[in-house]
Design a binder for these strands. Structure first.
Lengths: 208, 208
DNA sequence: GACGCCTCTTGACAGGTTGCCAACAAGCGG
DNA sequence: CCGCTTGTTGGCAACCTGTCAAGAGGCGTC
């Protein structure tokens, strides 16, 4: 019998261990809702003591936030520069680009737009809002609005409401299959065009 | 000293007590996310023993479901018979009515449209979907579509996507204050009108 | 006016979860 | 080979939830 000094556990670099726990947590949060994933589950899958999770992430909630944040950041990274044609052409191109992007990142995108866990949490809301605002900025830029427009704040808010429709349409298309890609394209193009041509121009500069 | 037999607690009719607890729960769920409202909090506000909540509603989750359900149902029950004028008049009336309703039930409505408080719960999802579908039905009826239209399923889905915008707009208006009621009115009216006049007519009968 | 009973209401208990922290030990540097 | 840094463990205390038998409010009856 070789006197193996069998270590009960292996010591890892902080970043490495942190990433390992993060990965396991992401898997579990993808499988079950937030409340049904206990830190014990995460620790078990990572083959680690439960306390270590708190050591690295502080709180179960903070760990969840980290997961959501990464999931939301990835999808909206590279918005290709849109063609500089008429408004109609640009809206169509934007919608088409969007549909392609979603097609490729289906699961990722769906997971990101339905933070399936902690809800109405200030921090989660902030993270999601940040992503929404950034994509609304891109839409406004693509539609030719000047970035120093005094109405920017409200224009952005209006585009964000359009984002609500986009998410809902994505769910109808991808999850429920009640709408075809073509129907979604028509819907989103038409509505975006109306938004840009009929609604946005009516907005008066910020009230104060 | 009058020998007052001071009762430690008052005995109420089941329906009455149930309603009282329900109301307090609705308030709290409107103030904080699901996870941050303990049954103790609800019991405290209702001036009642915690166990009584389980007696009436079984589970915290069931109580929450009841709250969400009512919040989603009440608003859409009495869609007053809309005036039978032009499409424009009817959309305006519908949007205006909706804004009034929301103003009155602000907290309740907000809590209901962001039921992520419990996280991708199948039951919650079902309830929300049910309500969304029902209100979409009402919108279609009000806009003069025949209930046996073969495209009904898809028309309904399209209106549901509009619902996504409605919810987003409500949040911008009530929660963040980035949009005024007037702006929301303009947005929702214009977009609904476009949906009804430009998008819906393009939908071809169900593919199979 | 007093009593009895129905059932509404309470309070305590068990199981489970989370955050914290002091002690332990892996494994590199001297 | 030994000591020290620090990654890691395991148990503790607080809290929350669902259950249940016991207690008491108050209506109906005599």
């Amino acid at each position: 019998m070789t006197a193996e000094s069998a270590p009960k556990w292996r010591r890892l670099e902080p970043d490495e261990r942190r990433e390992q726990i993060f990965t396991c947590a992401a898997q579990l949060f993808g499988e079950r809702p937030y409340a049904e994933v206990s830190t014990s589950d995460i620790a078990a899958r990572a083959g680690v003591a439960r306390g270590l999770i708190n050591h690295y992430f502080g709180t179960k909630r903070e760990l969840y936030l980290a997961v959501v944040k990464r999931a939301l950041t990835v999808p909206y990274v590279a918005v290709a520069q849109l063609p500089s044609g008429s408004v109609e052409e640009r809206t169509n191109a934007a919608v088409e680009w969007f549909l392609d992007m979603v097609s490729k990142q289906e699961k990722m995108w769906l997971a990101a737009i339905t933070p399936e866990g902690i809800g109405r949490d200030v921090e989660v809301e902030r993270i999601v809002d940040e992503a929404d605002r950034r994509s609304a900025d891109r839409v406004l830029q693509a539609m030719g609005f000047a970035e120093d427009d005094p109405r920017w704040e409200q224009l952005n808010a209006l585009v964000r409401t359009y984002g609500g429709m986009v998410k809902a349409a994505g769910r109808e298309w991808l999850v429920r299959g009640t709408l075809s890609r073509e129907q979604v394209r028509t819907l989103l193009s038409t509505q975006l065009l109306t938004l840009v041509k009929d609604v946005l121009p009516q907005i008066t500069p910020a009230p104060r």
